[in-house]
Every structure is written in structure tokens, then in C-alpha cells.
Amino acid sequence: MADAYLIPAVNGVAYGLLLYTVAAGLTLTFGVAGVLNLAHGTVYVLGGYLAVSLSDGTWTGLALGALAGTGAGLAAGLLLWGMLRPIEGRGHLAQALLTFGVALAGGALLVRAFGTDELRPSLPAALDAPVDLFGHRYPAYRLGFIGVAAVLALCGVLLVRRTRFGAAVRAVADDRDMVAVLGLDPRAVMAGVLAAGGALAGAAGALGAPILGPGPRTADTTLLLSLIIVVVGGLGSIGGAFIAAIAVGQVQSLGVIVAPDWAPYLLFAAMGVALLARRRRWAT
């Protein structure tokens, strides 16, 4: 009987890793720069649209799409940073509202450019076929995605845990005043973090397009799921976000089969509980 749950569970891992890549960017911007970036889902969608447009069924197209998605995400992050500069010191809420407006307008522009359908890239033939997984059929692309995303996630965790850059990021996430203590230029930190967060979202959008393709509703879905992951994972913790993302992936994949009546509530309920449990530290 465990066999029955194998494919949904593997699938949940693929989904979770995708969400982790997106949420890692959001965690970074929120944890380090203190910006609640509500345009994060829109950057994901931007990466997705670019990947779809550049895809032509070849490996080159796939690689180009991934590069373009990452690059566009990075640029979008820098653009956001530029837009946030004039309202520096006006608090989290002004930032959240501004990024929300950007999300609304940017989403509308993207729909105008790419239409209202949810799009999927055309993949190289080898990836666009099922492969055998313990006697089950499973889409080759998703299996490949699990591999790539796992490597990316591992690199990310090593970067944050083992390098000086990571140490600085962790220090700042713990206490934002550490920027000054470490002798960092706060403006450079902001720009870097927003660019990195955008790049992660753009890359996720490009690589995740065959799984969670760009469309008019995708930005909202991605943003809400990443918010849940960031919050449940502990607001700014990369490791916590990883565990939360895998859990969210399982709820979305295994949960809908095992407990279809409760799965929809589970995510936001978990978010509420996590927020109330941690409210003291993040009360500002």
C-alpha cells in the first residue's frame, strides 16, 4: 500500500523543491533586507514567461530560458531596489504596499504581453517523456528538476552555513543593526539581497515553468505559498524554509489524496499558528 503513495510523495518533493527555490529568495529579502516583497510572485512569473518564449524543444532553448529568467529576475530585483529607495525609512508597510502595486501593474503588463492562458515551455524530447521510477511512470522533467533543485538547495545551504558571506547574511538576518557592526554598506546589502532574491525567483520561474507554469493566477499562488513557507520556516531562516517548503509540497501532493477535505486549510492555519508562536521576536 505504501507503493500507492510513492508517486505523490516524490511529486511532493519536486513541488516542494520548486517552492523552496522561490521562497528562499523571499526569505532572503525579508530576513536580511527587511522588505516584505509582495511582487516576488510576479518575478517568478516573469522568469516563467521568458523561459516559455525562448523554449523551442532544444536543450539550448532550455538553457537560454533558464539564463534569461535568472537575469531578468536579477534585473527586476534591482529595479525594485531603485523604486524602494525614495521611501526608505517609511517602514515595512509602505514597502509592502509599494511592492504590491508593482505586482498588480507588472502582472497586468505581463498578461498583456503574453496573453491570459497558462503557458508551458516546449521541452527537449528526452525530458518531455515519462521515465520509469520504481515501476511507475513519472515525467522525466520533474525527476531531473528534483536533481537540479536539490543541488541548488544544497549549494544555498552550504553558502549560508559555511562561507563568510553566509555568516554575514545570518548575522544581519538575526539583527539588522549588525550591518553597521560588520562594516557593510547598508545600501549595497539591500541592492545585493534584492537582486539575489529576484534572481532566485526568476530562476525558479524559468526552471519551474513545466510544473507551475506562468499564467494570470500564478503570481498570487506562488506569492501566497512562499509567504506561508517563509513564515512557517521561521521568517528569515534558510534551513527552516527548506523544511517548510518540502512540507508544503507534500500537503499539496500527498495531502489532496489522503485528506482532501482538510488539505486546503492546513497551509494557512499553519501560517497563523507559526506567526502567533513567534510574534514576540518579530513584533516590529
Binding site: 505523490p8 501532493s253 489532496v256
Partner: peptide, 20 residues
Amino acid sequence: RWTPFPGTSDFLPYLNEIAQ
């Protein structure tokens, strides 16, 4: 078997259930 609407974009869990 009912799939949530409009939220479902991943049908693999359901398809896997059919295979059982």
C-alpha cells in the same frame, strides 16, 4: 473523484490513484 477548482494544476496524485 472531485479535484479542487480552480486551484488544481498538478493532477499526478490523482492519476496515480487511478493507476491503483
